[in-house]
Each structure stands twice: as C-alpha cells, then as structure tokens.
Nucleic acid binder design. Structure first.
Lengths: 349, 349
DNA sequence: TTGTAGGCGTTATCAT
DNA sequence: ATGATAACGCCTACAA
C-alpha cells in the first residue's frame, strides 16, 4: 500500500492534521515543524491520494469532456485534436485533469455523462459541440451542474457560458467575398442542421445573398456528413443541376477536400471554373492542391478558453455567465477566383 | 448534496449495507427487500458516488493516458485521434473511464503521471508511444504499476506487455517493393531516432537494402520532425545531393505529404520521376494528389487492443506478459512507379 | 501552533 | 438475510 499521511505523521512525530496542514501550506504552522514534516515527506516519497482528497473536499479537480455522438466521424476531423490540445493546455495550467467518456450511441454518451456528473467524478463538464435539443445540456441544467459549451447554444444563449466563433458573420463575410468575385450561383455545403454551427453558417450565407440581392436557390443548399465523402456527394448532386453553381461555401475543410477532389475528377478546374471556400483552417487546408482558401477559427483557443472559463466558474461560485467570441480570419489561398462570366480580374495569391 | 446510500436506506427502512448489497447484486438478499430497496433507489434517483466507491474498493475503473511529449506535433497527426478512438472504445466496452494528463515538457508529463499513479486516480496506464530511455516507463516499472505500451519497448521486450505492428517487417517489405520496381537510390525519411518506431523502420529499410545487395548510403537517411515541414526539409536536402534518390520511404503520411508537395513544387513528377511510399494510411493518404501508396497499420486496433490488454491485466492479477502484433498491409495507390533507369514496366493502380 | 475527532460515501467484515 | 462497525485516506472544525 502506498505511503499515507499517517505514515508521515508517525515518522515526523506529529499528528496527521499537522502533516495535512503542511501540505496545504497552512500559514499557522511553525517553521520548525514544517521543516521536519517536509523532510519526512521527502524521505517517504509521499504523494497525496487524490481520491481520498476528492472525497474529503468534495471536488476532484478534473473536468469531464463530452464528445459529439458521431464519434467515428469527429475523430477523423483534425479540428478535434486541436480543440483537445487547447482544452488540455488550459486544464494543465491549473492542474486540472481531463476525464473522457465516450459512447457510440447518444444513449451511451448520456449515460456516461450521468456517471461523471452524478458519480462525482468531475467538477464540471465541457460540451465539445452544440446541437439542437440536446438532452445532455438539459440534464446539466436541471442539475445545475457547472458546464460550458464550445459552440453557440441553440437556445438560452444568454444563460449559458459558451465559447464560440461568430460563425454567422464569418459565413456572411465569406459569401460576400465570393459575391465580390462576381459569383452569383453560390452553393452552400454543410453538415447536419442539428448542429448549431451549421445553422449559423447557413444563416450567414443566406443573409449575404439577400443583402447583395442575389437570388437564393434552395437547390444550392446541401447537408451531408461532415466527411470527404459528404463533400463528394454534394458535388455530384450540385454539378448535375441545370445551372450548377460556380462557387461553393463549404462548412468544413474535410468536406471541402472531398469537394475539391471530386471536382478534380470531373475535370473541373479550381479556381478557374469553380471557386471553393471553406472553414476551420485545419492542416488539410494548406496541404490540399490547390491550397484551400478557408476561415481560420482559432480552434486551439476555442478549447483553451473553454477550460479557462469553466475553471473560473468552479473557483468562483457566482462567476457571471460569459459568452466568449474567438476571432476568425479569412485565409486566402488558391481556391477562389473571379466568376467566369464576370468582368472581375482573377485574384492572385 | 446528492442522494446517498444512507438516504435510500432510510427511505427503504433498511441499513446502508443492505442497500449496498442490492446495488452490488449480492445473492444473499431476499427478493422482497431487494424490491423495496430498488423502489427507493428509483424514487430518489440514486447514483453511486464513484469517488467514495473508489476509495473503498481501492480502484477507480479508469485508465490513464500518457501522450508523447511533443504534444503540439502529435495532435496534428491524424494517427493520434484514431488510436484514441480505439482506446476509448475498448475502455467503454468495460465501463472504464479515460483520464488524460498532458504537459508541454517531459518534466510536466512525468509529474502528471506521478499524480495519476501515486494519487490513485487510475488503475493502470497506457503509453501512447515508445521511446528510448523513457523515465516514465522506468517509473512505472519501479512501482510495478500496471501499464501497457503502444509500440515496441526499447528494452525488455519480453517483460512489457505491448501492442505494436511489426514495423521492422513492414518497412522491409516496403523497401523491397521499391527495389522490385527497380529503384536503387532509395532514401529513408523518418522522425527522431529516440522513437522506437523510427528505429524499427530504419532497421527494416537497411535490412532490405542489404539483402538485395543495394549499397547503403547514409546520406539517404533523414531524421526530421514528424510534420509536413519535416518532409519538406528532407526533400530539399535530398534532392540537392549529387545523386538524388529516385524513391522515398517515408515513416509517416504527414511527412509524406510534405515530401509530395515539395517535390511537386520542384516540378518533379510523381510517380514518374520519383516514387514515394509511406506509413499509417491515415485519411491524408487517400486524399493527397496523387493518393499515397502507404502501409495500413490498423491504428484503431492498436488502441483497442491496448485497453483490452490493460483491463485484462487489472482484472487478473497474474495475467501473463503479452505482446500483441497488429497486422499491417501495403495499400498500393498512386505514388510508386518503376525506376526510370530500369526496364521494369510502370505499375498501374 | 498543534492534536483530537468526526465526516466525506462506499464497501467489507463481523456478528446476529 | 440483515445490521453494526470499521475501514479507505484525507480534511477541518473544535479543542487544547
């Protein structure tokens, strides 16, 4: 059995509580005994039992992570590891651990969350996604358990601490960029409409069209899996339209890659024949041929700020609700050009 | 405060121990009281406090994950999320949780591991890498703490349960494949020689050359960061040699992508002028242009089997040391062709 | 400044 | 079959 506080106490000839105080750096303790205890601590190689500690102080100093249910898919997207890195860096800064539960079905995940939360395994939870009508979110609220969501909550935006990009604006900007290049037939390819991020991006896209007086055509709106395959599927359908689009707003780099490759196979040239613009600026974006024009969303910060905020909530019981918007930025690379039928000069870069 | 076993006991008019037994499905308990207790359980919405439980049974049912120190880099590689998925699926099957600690420096990680292990936060640990002279591995052994490594241990191969590919053989096969295409000037581009996986792959490469009577040229051996940038760097140096290689064995898809792109920029054609073969068969491989010929290493299984084995160790104290080799397979795509100066016909696919 | 004792929520060992 | 009671290892009033 590992060395406990009692062993140390015995060796140092003090009571366990004294040892505990030394460890906690309690001010009212004499320098002398502090030294003695510290020596004993070293000598025995004491390490506190975090489980016992957690039980006593009713706090585990660990954060629970909830992944979206479409696990297999999410894990493919480079977006995910990057948030994770942000999360873990933020957690590590404050000596917090990270606890993951996973599950294949929505049910399994829900059960996992209950275990974490009700089981006292974690002090707070971070939702790595935001979707419409999420029972997990409801559960957390009903139990007034501390949590923050990465993404924009579908409802009660003002009541839920979250960290997100302004996806509406980003999408609008991107669409405007395409419009500025003379495109009129602009398609939107995104994921499921249950994901709030998709909704926001669609909305931004539509709003840009509207303001520019470009007719909205719902044949140009595609919702597919957030994979290369999804992108491929969308292209196939879109390019068989009577009036195929000349530009694509794609909600994710991974999908965009599928779009690019499929267009390629159809002998459609990018950016000469068709423009593609996408989101997230993952590694894939710079590596694709041609390199993707995409929106940098600072994925790392999304995660980093999420842990930071959660830890603040945990440390200060009445921390106000916060809404943290991480800035975005259009990264122009090689997949966008002037519309063929326009008079605008093709962009360089 | 949450509802405890005592609350349930009170409601059911039994002792806490009885409730505990009902929960544990203890056989010697009357059907009648079992029902009563179960009703109380439901009524109060009881969920066991895992922390208290862990303290009592001296086991947390969670597994600690140790990432390689070059965190930023690792998280970029699609390899990582895939193992993670395997790990988490394996863990979930047996109701185990996953606990991650991270850190930027080797020191930080070491400290994190001590916390997990000595702090009793986890029952066992999985090392997601294998490197030469790893203090963490030593620490684990010294404390005879259950662990398994993903990869081949540098020493004591017979004493450490691990799950790995036969990287030596895979690399040899791959090199032979290139030799079979008529290549003689074959370069090897890999990561750090501290990583055992690199060592194994270099060894396999050398062995193939030797057996084929192809001269080994140590100018053809490059060690770079395991990133696209690393691949790029390697190409630059290699292609400026007096006799540049006509083929590349690249130890990772990510690097290989860098290789491909750089070659591309140099107007060197693939596979016509130069062949490239790589490892891991991540998503990147199928998406690159041309698609990468690479080795499928079944990354998911690496993770899945790792948790499986660890959990077996935990459940059966004298489970034998195991060495699990996950099969690999060459996936021929579009980056390899016959050497220009040979008489061999260019391969299709 | 230090020690004593009780509690955190379970499980497990005794009795009964 | 069930109920006390004592761990598990730590923290924290309260007392001294």
């Amino acid at each position: 059995m590992a060395v406990t506080i009692k062993d140390v106490a015995k060796l140092a000839n003090v009571s366990p509580s004294t040892v505990s105080r030394v460890i906690a750096n309690n001010p009212r303790i004499s320098e002398k005994t502090k030294e003695i205890v510290n020596k004993a601590l070293k000598e025995l190689g004491y390490h506190p039992n975090m489980i016992a500690r957690s039980l006593a102080i009713q706090s585990t100093e660990t954060i629970g992570l909830v992944m979206p249910s479409s696990n297999g898919i999410v894990f493919q997207n480079p977006f995910f590891p990057t948030v994770l890195r942000g999360l873990s860096e933020g957690a590590h800064d404050r000596q917090f651990g990270l606890h993951m539960t996973t599950g294949k079905t929505e049910e399994e995940i829900y059960e996992g969350v209950r275990q974490m939360v009700h089981g006292g395994r974690v002090d707070g939870v971070i939702l790595l996604y935001s979707k419409v009508d999420d029972p997990i979110l409801t559960y957390l609220q009903d139990n007034s358990f501390p949590f923050v969501v990465i993404g924009k909550p579908f409802t009660q935006v003002e009541q839920i601490t979250h960290v997100d990009n302004d996806n509406y604006r980003a999408s609008k900007e991107v669409t405007n960029y395409l419009i500025g290049l003379g495109h009129k037939r602009i398609a939107f390819v995104g994921g499921d409409l249950n994901q709030v991020v998709t909704i926001e991006r669609v909305l931004g896209y539509e709003s840009a069209l509207r303001e520019a007086g470009v007719e909205f055509n719902d044949e140009y709106l595609m919702h597919e899996d957030c994979t290369t395959e999804g992108g491929r599927q969308a292209v196939k359908e879109l390019m068989h339209l009577a009036h195929p689009p000349t530009a694509f707003v794609v909600a994710d780099d991974l999908m965009a890659l599928g779009v690019l490759n499929t267009l390629n196979e159809m002998n459609i040239r990018i950016p000469d024949d068709v423009s593609v613009i996408s989101f997230n600026n993952t590694l894939l974006a710079e590596m694709s041929r041609p390199p993707l024009t995409t929106v940098e969303i600072n994925t790392f910060d999304l995660g980093f700020q999420a842990t930071k905020s959660l830890i603040q909530m945990l440390e200060n019981k009445n921390e106000p609700i916060k809404r943290i918007i991480i800035p975005h930025k259009l990264i122009v690379r090689g997949t966008c050009g002037a519309a063929k039928d326009s008079n605008i000069v093709k962009t360089g870069d």
